[in-house]
Design a protein around this nucleic acid. Structure first.
Length: 432
RNA sequence: GGAGGAGUGGCCGAGCGGUUGAAGGCGGCGGUCUUGAAAACCGCAGUCCGUUAACAGCGGACCGGGGGUUCGAAUCCCUCCUCCUCCGCCA
């Protein structure tokens, strides 16, 4: 959510910045509602001040035994007008809030202007495309032939966009999760948290999934819960409605969670393999920082995510998303894109964003600046560190050998009982 | 699921329907004292909204959330939520 006072005083500037997102957003409802609210509020508060004074006076008179019936009558009438005004105010405030909740964040100055992903700018690349002397298989063919991936059975038990990993596949997924968490907690200073995988609507509202993107979420039938689309939601909500101390910052968290997404509107996209699923695993990094440090923290957050790819020896590039490709809540985002030889393309494997105070304002996450009166909103950031399933895809495709086996990256071997190579293994009993 | 109990400021804990934003204690901050520290003593301290150049004043709201009664509600009524205890069930 944008700061109402800032919006009021800089409404033309805001309109212009939002236009860079490619979204035509008319801020007139704000102009109208905000003005109405303020004049009505002023009037109503004046009446309340009078009522308070009168009531006090009535109490005093009655204590002295003086009859105050006529005064009480007057105040009763005042009370009725106050009540009517309060109701009107409430509906205006609700409308205003609902409108503000649908206004996206402002892009940071350093974000390239453009209308879609073609305008994203390349920040840097690491490593090189492998140059195998054979035609690399896409991971779904490789995984099935190795017996570590079973998509048909996943489809039967759940549906399209689900997966079953088995044997070395399941082990590799688990190894990746442990490796990532260990790296971030032991070397990068994050604190591991394991949170609920379902949250309430307030939490979804705080991070920006609601109210606008309900169709992307799974809602649990018969309950007030939503399945989380990313651990960003529960972890950011760890400090919802809290006022923290300046010396507490920065706060760094790493969390493993499964992620659940409807993928509404992406029919026909990435229909094969593990790239786009209704359920996938992810290790998420979340930071709470002081406003003045958030952009340097975004750089280090991105580096922390990159380190996973470096240690796995996977070639990738870093893109800065342009204004038109930026997510609703983000002020600036770097995407990490890993090279997938089976598909001859770079695919997003991490998205690292600074939300500035956009989420903090929705969530009420504040701190007390030292030597200053009052409170300020913190800045929140998060990034995948990394998407585990896509990471598994990248390993299968990048580490496949001519003989159809897959080498296990060095750093993962300790997590896999020393396994150096994934060879064809006995899968589950074959279908008749 | 059944039966009881409780929700007040960072924490603990008072609060006959009328200067109670809220006693007291702890913690925090500033000061006195001290070579320094502790102790003791003095003082300051909530959040949000509106007005405003102002994080100065002034006004309004907030005692789990929402609604009601009343001239006036932290205090009375209704409702929802959360937590605790006992029984049942359960990984």
């Amino acid at each position: 959510m944008l700061d109402v006072r800032f919006l009021r005083e800089n409404i033309d500037f805001v309109e212009e910045r939002l236009a860079a997102r490619g979204e035509v957003l008319d801020l007139d409802p704000f102009r109208k509602l905000d003005g109405e609210r303020r004049s009505l509020l002023r009037e109503t508060e004046d009446m309340k001040a009078r009522r308070n004074a009168e009531s006090l006076e009535i109490g005093r008179l009655r204590k002295e035994g003086v009859d105050a019936a006529d005064r009480m009558e007057v105040v009763r009438g005042l009370g009725e007008r106050i009540k009517a005004n309060d109701e009107r105010l409430k509906s205006i405030e609700t409308e205003l809030r609902e409108f503000l909740l649908t206004v996206p964040n402002l892009p940071h100055d350093s974000v390239p202007v453009g209308k879609d992903e073609n305008a994203n700018s390349l920040v840097r690349t690491w490593g090189e495309k492998p140059d195998p002397a054979f035609d690399p298989l896409p991971h779904w063919e490789l995984g099935e032939s190795l017996g570590v991936l079973d998509l048909p059975r996943a489809a039967r038990m759940a549906g399209a966009r689900f997966s079953v990993l088995s044997g070395a596949g399941a082990l590799l997924e688990r190894a990746l999760i442990s490796f990532m968490l260990d790296l971030h907690t032991r070397e990068h200073g994050y604190r591991e948290v394991l949170t609920p995988f379902m949250v309430n609507a307030d939490s979804m509202l705080a991070t920006g999934q609601l109210p606008k993107f309900e169709e992307d979420l799974f809602r649990v039938e018969g309950g007030q819960f939503y399945l989380i689309p990313t651990a960003e939601v529960p972890v950011t909500n760890l400090h919802r409605e809290e006022i923290m101390k300046e010396k507490d910052f920065p706060l760094l968290y790493a969390a493993y969670s499964p992620c659940f997404r409807r993928e509404a509107g992406s029919h026909g996209k990435d229909t094969r393999g593990l790239i786009r699923l209704h359920q996938f695993n992810k290790v998420e990094l979340v930071k709470f920082t002081l406003p003045e440090n958030s952009y340097e923290e975004l750089e280090s957050l991105t580096r922390d995510a990159e380190e996973v790819l470096k240690r796995l020896g996977l070639h990738y590039r870093v893109m800065s998303l342009c204004t038109g490709d930026l997510g609703f809540s983000a002020a600036k985002t770097y995407d990490l894109e890993v090279w997938l030889p089976g598909q001859e393309s770079y695919r997003e494997i991490s998205s690292c964003s600074n939300f500035e105070d956009f989420q903090a304002r929705r969530a009420g996450i504040r701190y007390r600046p030292e030597g200053e009166k009052g409170t300020r909103f913190v800045h929140t950031l998060n990034g995948s560190g990394l998407a585990v399933g896509r990471c598994l895809v990248a390993i299968l495709e990048n580490y496949q050998q001519k003989d159809g086996t897959v080498l296990v990256p060095e750093v993962l071997r300790p997590y896999m009982g020393g396994m150096e190579r994934i060879a064809r293994e006995m899968g589950p009993a074959s279908k008749s």
